[in-house]
Simulated scan of single mutants.
Amino acid sequence: MRFILVLLFVLGPLGPVNAKIMKPLTPEEQRVILHKGTERPFSGKYENHHESGTYHCRRCGAPLYRSSDKFDSGCGWPSFDDEIPGAVKRVPDADGRRTEIVCARCGGHLGHVFEGERFTPKNTRHCVNSISLDFAPAEQPVALVSEIVPVGGTAAVPAGSGAAGGGVELPSGPAGAKEQGEKRAETAIFAGGCFWGVEYMMQQVPGVISVESGYTGGHVPNPTYQQVCTGRTGHAEAVRIVFDPAKTDYETLAKLFLEIHDPTQAGGQGPDVGDQYRSEIYYASPGQRAVAERLLDTLRAKGYSVVTRLTPASVFYPAEAYHQDYYERKGTLPYCHKYTRRF
């Protein structure tokens, strides 16, 4: 058996690979390249790297990407909208939703590929771990790829501003008055993994007026996505939902929230790991707290080991514009959020 395992390592999944070209890997490199792990966003040396040249496989040295195909997606990992022909292979990810990319020469894990995000005209994003790459500078400089996505946020809005218990004014003017009369909307704030998926799921609920992705629960004012991803600001990726209480209610939204993510997973959600992806309910009134407590107790009574936190709502900072309506713009479905009936 040991001989077979060694043979598979040397041959690789795609054919013979000369053992002499296989470079020794550190334990962290092995975790990512051999065992398909993921480095922390914004931690890799090539995430904000703009030198002209070619990116090679860290394991076998095969050329994979040209610097002219690299762009800034704001995701926290090096992004490329094209690969060197034949250098990268696509395979179904073990999660059943995403597409993994590996070195076509040695099978080393690189990351994942996404299509339809409209970051560049090629409409493709290879999201690659820096640790899976080496870089060879070009002899002659070439023009840098311009940044595709602007980085920046919008002003923070304190949770519950405008009305007690999280209420906000509905649209004003003749159209708003005609549709809504003198009613007041209410707000709900939930954190359950990547805010893209929670946002999309909540947008499908009749009676929901708007859903906004953002950051809350931390101690750094006006945080950026890059700062939140370090795990040092204390913020969670969250969504703020404005809804019409005449068409839906807080309990309906809270139930759905607990059924579209895993409230028993600590320290992340699905493949996204980190405290910023924690499960948390931010209540804006005593009534919301009572509803949330009852629902969490119901799940515990059914045998779920719930880790969802229950916290008073505080300042909510809207995320950068490129995070808003992500799946609506992409035209696809969330990869780490799906409905599971629990109530």
Rank of each mutant, 00 (worst) to 15 (best):
C106F: 07
A62I: 15
H126N: 06
T187N: 11
Y55T: 01
L253S: 07
Q30G: 15
L8I: 13
P206L: 08
G303S: 02
A104Q: 04
Y317W: 10
T124Q: 03
Q204S: 12
Y282T: 12
N222Q: 13
Y55R: 05
G268N: 04
V113Q: 00
E328F: 13
I101F: 01
C127Y: 01
L7C: 15
E179Y: 14
F243C: 07
V198I: 07
D69P: 02
V102N: 10
G268E: 08
L11I: 06
K20F: 11
V145Q: 13
L295R: 10
P263N: 03
P245K: 06
K45M: 13
H337E: 00
A155I: 11
S161E: 15
P41E: 02
P137C: 00
I281W: 04
R31E: 12
P78G: 03
Y327I: 01
S161G: 13
A159M: 09
K302P: 09
F190N: 02
G152F: 06
D262N: 07
R278S: 03
D262V: 07
A292R: 03
R300N: 04
V239E: 03
H323P: 11
F3T: 14
T38E: 02
V315N: 13
K23N: 10
A321S: 14
T230V: 06
G96N: 04
A254H: 12
G234Q: 05
R66T: 12
F257E: 05
A104D: 05
P121Y: 02
S305H: 09
A136T: 15
A163W: 14
M202Q: 08
T224Q: 10
Y282H: 15
L64P: 10
P245F: 08
K183P: 09
Y317G: 05
E251N: 12
G193H: 01
L5E: 14
C75W: 00
F135W: 03
R329A: 03
G165M: 09
L14F: 12
T311V: 10
S210H: 07
P245Y: 08
V208I: 06
I131N: 05
F316W: 08
